[in-house]
Design a protein around this nucleic acid. Sequence first.
DNA 1: GCCGTTTTCGGCCCGACTGTTTTCAGTCG
Length: 572
Amino acid sequence: MPVHNSEIADAFDKLADLLEIEAANPFRVRAYRNAALTIRAHPHAMAELVAQGADLSELPGIGDDLAKKIRTLVETGELPALKQAERRTPGALVAMLRIPGLGPKRVRALHAQLKVRSLKDLERAARAGRIRELAGFGAKTEAKILDQLQRQAQVERRATRSAAEDIAAPLLAYLGAVKGVKQVTLAGSYRRCRETVGDLDILITASKDAPVMDRFVSYDEVVAVVSQGDTRSTVRLRSGMQVDLRVVPQVSYGAALHYFTGSKAHNIAVRSLAVKRGLKLNEYGVFKGDKRIAGRTEQEVFDAVGLPYIEPELRENRGEIEAARQGRLPKLLTLAELRGDLHCHTEASDGHDSLRAMALAARELGYDYLAICDHSRHVTVAHGLEPERLAAQLDAIDKLNDELDGIVLLKSCEVDILADGTLDMPDDILARLDLAVCAVHYKFQLSRRRQTERILRAMDNRHFSILAHPTGRLINDRPPYDIDLERLMKAAVERGCFMEVNAQPDRLDLSDEACRMASELGLKVAISSDAHSCAGLGCLRYGVDQARRGWLTADDVINTRSLKALRRLLQR
DNA sequence: GCCGTTTTCGGCCCGACTGTTTTCAGTCG
């Protein structure tokens, strides 16, 4: 069983946590965390790189020592440095760091002075009133710890972008209506278009006397005020979402937006660049001595540190700063560049709207084409189509295409990939399609080898066009099935087929890292809504967000092509 | 532990808020 990148990253993160509790050199701790970030985001498996004899110390934030540790982990499955740390400090202590208000110093104190070794111990100590007696702790801290321990029982989930928007929209409108407020911007991971959002970060510029903070904490949905100051406050909403609000003067808007957009790792890297230029960068601007030399816009901030503008989606310290310095940032795909949608359903299977309604909705969106992909028969719960029903639908599409101007319906089907890798539709009818969108909908538990071979075999069918939702994951609900994605991507390139970036907010499958790997391997993708209604076509923008995070350009995406060019690409 | 158009040694981002503090450490983003 190969060691996954996430396991290596987890090991380094845990070691960093333990070292922090031990009060080790904070920069050494950061080195482990940076390495974990690099490894987690890396499109290729470290195990593969090790096997190929690659020089891991060329990766950013990884030097000779960490390269050796990665190698050891890959080859033995163990990290001796972590084992040793766990002998010195109980590994269970790292769980305490997850409790808001407890950091490494306090966890260390609790362990050293109260012999707390686990969350259970912590709860007992809090109930016994022993925590308040420690220096640096008090009754309030003790109560907060107990409260948080109870809260921890609830599962922690990050909201999808779409859920976050539902929560944010009314709050942004409410804040925008406060007297004296000028700009209201949603920053943070939402602005970076991450597939999930942990909390909302709102940036506001307002006149000095605007009662922003008072209004913020008295918002109807607020159930707890975590902190409140003149320029920054944090609340928790009924939905469980935490919201940070930051108010800055207009001259600082750009610097504050950059700072509040993050990511943290990106900010640290950019601030380091400022330091090298003898400048100081904070949320109020770029300073030379006491003099503010930039900060009204983000562009000014980037100019000051000698970088071109970097799009928020790229700000993860995954190589964007290097790329910016070398002038090789990608020109990211935009929603307007998409000419059509290559995956949707109608009432013939599990969609809600008719063929005609979907066609008109697509035309309204300005598309040139829309592929109709109702399920094949194996997906019985979705009223999957028998070959005969599909044949009838294809006739109906021909008829509608004759009748409608300004939109072309493409004949397709979301064909099930059966357990043995054959397709759930006979070849003679597949031959009538413009494209076949193929997908796995059952037998998720096959071994990595068998699942990969199942899909490879399906791709061998020359009618196979696009692998839909390639990993099957559902955000917060179902992990991806175990496949060798890199092998499948290479195979798709060789066979002239493609993969989908499914734009459903709870799928977003491929992931951002996988998009980047596809681009590096020369595999083109389709960004598709998988809409089950006219309104559902609108979620295509989430797929664009994901593709942008994966550094994709219009050239990487097949549905940026004209219909004619698309048809050429679909020929195998 | 990493890294180098000031360095192979000596740096490593920066500020707000809270609680326990009489001047600040710890935590957080």
